[in-house]
Amino acid sequence: MSTRRLFDIDGRTERYRSVLRENWFTYLLIMPVLLFLIVLMWLPFLQGIYMSFNEWPFGGDPTWIGAANYEFLLNWEPFYTSLKATAIFSLTTVFQLGVALAAALAVRELRRGKSFVSAAFLLSYTMPPLVIGTIWAYLLEPDFGPVFGYLTELNVLGETIYWGSSGPMSLAVVMFVTTWTFWPFMFLIISASLESIPEELYESARMYGAGPIQTFLRVTLPQLKSAILVALSIRIIWNMTKISQVLQLTNGGPGYDTSILAVLLYQFAYERGQMGVSYAIGIVLLVMTLGFVFVFIREFERASEGAGA
């Protein structure tokens, strides 16, 4: 028994050694990327987990306090406001999908001008999100921004709306701006996938007498499924963690009504200097997003297999 195991270990190290000898150049090629990701991602991440169990002032020395940061959050009323805001805010991803799908299907019908149209669509996505947030802060400014200016002048509204003082309206504004900014990303992925659907599928659908709605449900949608899930899972995580627009438009207020978890994390780190609590919030956020990572990998795999076949 013991000799066998010894033999095994010998065999195994021998195998590793030969794998290394044959492929050392390949491993050398991927080394930089792996090294960067370990140093830039995994080490900080592990340090962060350790941080969340400490009282850790910025630039100061940590003190181990166990799970006290998490306990603090669970007993802190605004944390629940923030969770609720995060859940509602994440619906922006669904709106983005809706707009992107409609846009991709509509653009497919165009005979000409496709290039101009998709350039126009992409405008909001190429600019820095904070720039777009600042632009909308002006457009939606209640006293002299053009949106409410025209709405009151044309008597659609009796008087302007000070949305900044209402929680639900602030959240709606933030969601609107986020949707407006980021839907083109999904549009890119979905229209690329739409282009790759073989024409024969449509022809045979037509031959069997399928109407436009049936064709969409039975042919287009199943073919787009992987692209949609990849786009959805990337976007849902990115939306939840992009904070510049929320900070610029509402700064998380009024109260904590638009403080999605990522904003709360930012405020604890930057404004209060409590890195430990901040990271504890980050862990909660990570747990919320984890499921989507698996969806992403599975569908990514499926999509690349489909492309290879």
Partner: peptide
């Protein structure tokens, strides 16, 4: 490597500052 794309980067900011 690819799944790093899904990592909520905001979590890295704090340790990276440090």
């Amino acid at each position: 490597i690819i799944s790093a794309m899904m990592f909520p980067y905001i979590l890295l900011v704090i340790p990276i500052m440090d």
